[in-house]
Design a protein around this nucleic acid. Sequence first.
DNA 1: ATGAAAGCGCTAACAG
DNA 2: CTGTTAGCGCTTTCAT
Lengths: 325, 325
Amino acid sequence: MANIRDVARAAGVGIGTVSRALNDSGYVEAGKKEKIRRIAKELNYRPSELSRSFVQKKSGLVGIVLPDVAFPFYGAFLKYAELELNHIGYKTLVCNTLGVQKRVSDTLDLIEAGSLDGMIINTDVTREEIERMKGMPVVSFERVLAKEIPMVASDHIKGGQIAAKLLKENGCKNVMILGARFATKVHAENRIKECRRILEQSGIQVTAVEINGAFLSYPFIEEMISQYLDMYSRIDGIFTEDVEAYCCLMQAKKRGIYVPRDLKIVGYDGNEMTRMIDPQVTTIAQDVPLLARTCVEVLAKKIAKEKVDAHYYIPVKLLQGGTTV
Amino acid sequence: MANIRDVARAAGVGIGTVSRALNDSGYVEAGKKEKIRRIAKELNYRPSELSRSFVQKKSGLVGIVLPDVAFPFYGAFLKYAELELNHIGYKTLVCNTLGVQKRVSDTLDLIEAGSLDGMIINTDVTREEIERMKGMPVVSFERVLAKEIPMVASDHIKGGQIAAKLLKENGCKNVMILGARFATKVHAENRIKECRRILEQSGIQVTAVEINGAFLSYPFIEEMISQYLDMYSRIDGIFTEDVEAYCCLMQAKKRGIYVPRDLKIVGYDGNEMTRMIDPQVTTIAQDVPLLARTCVEVLAKKIAKEKVDAHYYIPVKLLQGGTTV
DNA sequence: ATGAAAGCGCTAACAG
DNA sequence: CTGTTAGCGCTTTCAT
């Protein structure tokens, strides 16, 4: 493969001139610039990105670290994040931690080694990892890590309010709120707190239960939900994430509980699958494209060493479906 | 950040010795090796990957190019592929083409520029792109591109046979087979051909229809299916991909068609969501983990310039659900 | 406006 | 075994 010296020789100029001509940097005589470009094309010359990255000390790569891209919400997030990163000239590296903590610190290593210009992270992290991240161009998605690390999240407080209002209007008297437990403080927990607060204020019985562990497989989620439904048989309303909402629907059918007559289910996330399956789950939709865009914009600022805010909140909205009335 | 020279100075040795000590290459006196390692750690030294990549002419990055990671099948594939690549020391770059052809050639550029050591591709490609790929470490997933480019795919012929047998046994007389149309020859088309051949041989009426375009959004898929169901109202069996199968279920309900009594639906792919939603779709499952592992193994061989086969076929298997009897 | 030259930080070849 | 040295291909001064 031709290198810059081959082009310089063929064009009868110095390599500096070739570099300037091809990068539109510095001064190059107009005609000469054309000639150099033509010759570069003839030689099928591609500047070695490896060399450019090395000399410029940036890789053009951004890492996205998430629990499991096969979960609909994360898959959607990655899609839009990659799209936005591409728009501003970055390539996207993915890392599915699948609950393996080492993968997070490995990705931090990549930043230190220069392989990554920045990172968007949405997984559990340890105290040490938070310390390391403080000096790095990192944006946290959903997790409250430290004041030095900007966080982008949905307006989960509003989400909790919408859910509470809906369950109340649906006449529920005995609501189960189902969420995952994380090692790292997740902003989404506010949706649970807020929903619970409002419901209890109205004299509605609330049972908040946790699915233990940030990373789970579907069969395990179903099993957990099945057990909870056995334990709390008088439940007439459920508030949980979309994936879990479908598991609840499945379990309800198995038990002969008719939804929405006997049981209302309110989902969270607004995954596309909630719209294409009957019944459509009533759900509170996060604005994934905007979440992704915001993460990328904030990260770009961090990389450019510009000032960024500590928190960014993205609105949510209710999507009516057939699991409430 | 400390560089190799700082470590060498602090340890009172030459940089060559540091390099050998840290990489376990060549000879270094045992005690000295320990000392160098200790000092490197004290200085919090991380070798610049940018420099190492540059000098070794490999990036350690593999690109995965697919239509849209938010689709369940691709999301699952990416998950397992990333996992397998990580096992053998590669990082994973994602590229969602979303139907934009330029993104494919951009990724090819990355290989030429050295940013990518190899690529797994599962999108439409042009003739020119195929030509370019012939000399590159590329594995095609599902697409028949050229004899120089190894392909990994499910055993779709067997898949078509399983579907045909099932629809026949279910007593269907009028089957619709629904598939997407691609610009590039997709091996999965064989499942349609084979299913059709067998059904017609048994005197069953078959209508094969296409969803036009390789990349589509859910609402558009629903609209297409709705139209097809209007056009072919006497259909009593459908064979299509899982996502489309759910759209068919939805449309059937809207029309008061009872599944499986009046209409049998056989899905394809075996997405996890087909197991967690009621009714579970009867589907022919691809072995995504094995597909991903095979792609990665074959790619590793290609990168190492070892011989590889032209085609690799992965078994499929039937998952019974509630959309057939 | 442009050629020559100095690195970037590392690996690998080489002489000792 | 180990220190020195020669690049890798590019960008970026720096004289001219």
